[in-house]
Structure formats: C-alpha cells, structure tokens
Amino acid sequence: MEVKIARTAGFCWGVRRTMDKVDEVAASAAGPVVTLGPIIHNPQAVARMREKGVGTVAEVQEVAPGATVVVRTHGAVRTELERARARGLSVVDGTCPYVKFPQVMAQRLTREGYHLVVVGDANHAEVKGVVSFAEGPCTVMKPGGAVPEFKAKRVAVIAQTTCIGADFERAVGALALRHQEVRAVNTICSDTDERQADARALASEVDAVVVVGGKNSANTRHLAEICREIQPRTWHVETEDELDPSWFTGCTVVGLSAGASTPDWVIEGVAARLRDMR
C-alpha cells in the first residue's frame, strides 16, 4: 500500500525542546534525574528515557534528596513546584512555552477579577497545572459539554492548548449569552491548529487513516476524532503491533498522522508495517 504521511506528524517544537532538555540534564547531572509525571504522553518515549536512567515520579515527596527534577512538557501544579523549591531540589522547567501562556493568563485574569473558565479536560495534567495558577474562581468546562452554572458578571475564557477550535468557539458563544461580560483569550497552540488542518486534508485524500500516538495523549485522540469525521476508516494505535490487516481490505492509499508527542521512530515503524501489507 502507498502511505501518505502528514507533514506535521510527530514531535512538535515544544515537545522536542523538552526532550532535548531532559537529554542534556541526564548527561550532565551529578545525581539522579526524575521527571515530575511522564515527560510526554507517549509510553515508548518514556520507556526510552527510563533506559537512559531518567525516572518518573508522581509527586515531589517521592524525589530523593540531591535529585534533579525536570518539569514535563505539560507543566506542573503550582504547589508541587513550591514544594520542590522548599526542599532545595534542583528544578529544571521543561514546560512548553505554549503551555506557559494559559498558566500566565489564568493568574492574570483572575487577579483582574474575572471568573475564569478553562475549556478542556479537568483530569489532564496541563489543565490541572493551569487551574493551579488561578487566584480566584475557576471552572473547567468539558469541550462539547454542558455550560457550567455559576454566578458572575465578568467571565474570562481560555482553552487547553490542544482544544479543538470549534469547541472553544462554542463555549465562548454559550457563555456570552449568560454573562454580562465575556473576555476570550485564545490559548490554543498554533501547532495544534496546523496539525488538525493537516489531518482533515489528509483524511479527505485517502482510503483509510492511521493516527499514531499514546492512548492518553489528548492531541492524538483529537486528531483521530477529526479524521474519523471525514474518513470513518480511522484507527488510533500506539505502535505497529496493533495494526490489523483486515482494517485495510480494498485500500490503495493509507494516510498516517501522529500526535505531537509521538517519536519519529515510532511513526516510521508504523509506516514500514503498512507498506509491507498486502
């Protein structure tokens, strides 16, 4: 089969920056190196980091004295950062700059007296981190979900960086009908918009689509959802081992997209298996 790979498939700039930073720290640190949470939402990449001696902890209290703590791409909860510094641990901030933006806006907008609404997944590490920087009332609204009920005259709306633009637009419009003043700040990562547009175009040109990336990666799941709306024969896999030849019966051209946290070598493994299928 012919395999068409999306131009934007694989690591985004922010993820590559963080991965390079972890490699540098691992090579130069005198003591242990750990990341606060999985460095990115890709099990294969995390496993490779483990092979290099980089561990993963869920909380700062698990970190051994003398260790270097690297904050993952998605950022960290503010109190965890404060605990790390209070313990005198060496902290290297690997937060993607595009994730820093909603953190800064959460703090600034709530200081200005707005009730903050974050359009995103309340259980996602990025959103938990953003919410922790709010210094006033804050509500998380699930993309495509019901409009939350609360009393406030002034409301500010921001989004998880991987949010689908249409979901953010719907949330802002719905809130504007309920509150006197609604201020919207678009915190969706520009790479996310470009990657999603690429996925839409790809899905319209092929007989089937494979989206590669961690099952717990929000941006990868969104890519699969977008492709599936256009091309029903869309599958989300983490590695080539999950591919089922029966999915591609009658297919001549298969599209391949990948989340921002998917390593190149994983994408190439899936592409090679697809090309070998008959």
Rank of each mutant, 00 (worst) to 15 (best):
residue 242 E to L: 14
residue 18 T to N: 01
residue 225 E to G: 09
residue 10 G to Q: 10
residue 266 V to G: 13
residue 278 R to M: 09
residue 162 T to I: 07
residue 30 A to Y: 11
residue 198 D to Q: 10
residue 177 L to G: 00
residue 225 E to A: 15
residue 70 V to C: 13
residue 278 R to C: 10
residue 173 G to P: 05
residue 83 R to P: 06
residue 259 G to E: 04
residue 1 M to P: 03
residue 12 C to V: 08
residue 184 A to S: 07
residue 176 A to N: 05
residue 60 V to Q: 07
residue 196 Q to M: 05
residue 62 E to G: 03
residue 170 R to L: 15
residue 169 E to R: 11
residue 27 A to T: 15
residue 6 A to V: 09
residue 144 G to Y: 01
residue 65 P to T: 02
residue 231 Q to N: 14
residue 55 G to I: 15
residue 93 D to M: 09
residue 232 P to Y: 06
residue 99 V to C: 00
residue 15 V to Y: 05
residue 229 E to K: 09
residue 246 S to M: 14
residue 179 H to L: 10
residue 103 Q to K: 01
residue 246 S to D: 14
residue 20 D to F: 01
residue 155 V to E: 10
residue 179 H to G: 08
residue 38 P to K: 03
residue 62 E to D: 10
residue 205 E to N: 00
residue 219 N to A: 01
residue 268 E to Q: 14
residue 226 I to W: 04
residue 46 V to G: 04
residue 1 M to K: 03
residue 145 G to T: 06
residue 193 D to W: 12
residue 220 T to L: 04
residue 104 V to N: 00
residue 227 C to M: 07
residue 183 R to Y: 06
residue 72 R to T: 12
residue 95 T to F: 04
residue 157 V to Y: 10
residue 135 E to Y: 02
residue 145 G to L: 07
residue 263 P to V: 13
residue 53 G to P: 13
residue 194 E to G: 12
residue 264 D to T: 15
residue 37 G to Q: 02
residue 160 Q to E: 05
residue 11 F to C: 09
residue 255 G to F: 06
residue 84 A to R: 07
residue 167 D to R: 02
residue 79 T to D: 10
residue 255 G to E: 09
residue 202 L to E: 09
residue 181 E to A: 13
residue 70 V to I: 06
residue 278 R to P: 10
residue 42 N to V: 14
residue 59 E to V: 11
residue 171 A to W: 05
residue 20 D to Y: 00
residue 230 I to E: 09
residue 144 G to P: 05
residue 115 H to K: 14
residue 275 R to T: 11
residue 255 G to I: 01
residue 161 T to A: 11
residue 94 G to L: 11
residue 110 T to Y: 03
residue 153 K to P: 14
residue 4 K to P: 06
residue 2 E to T: 15
residue 183 R to V: 15
residue 250 G to D: 10
residue 169 E to A: 15
residue 185 V to K: 04
residue 14 G to V: 05
residue 172 V to Q: 08
residue 124 H to C: 05
residue 223 L to H: 03
residue 263 P to R: 08
residue 7 R to G: 06
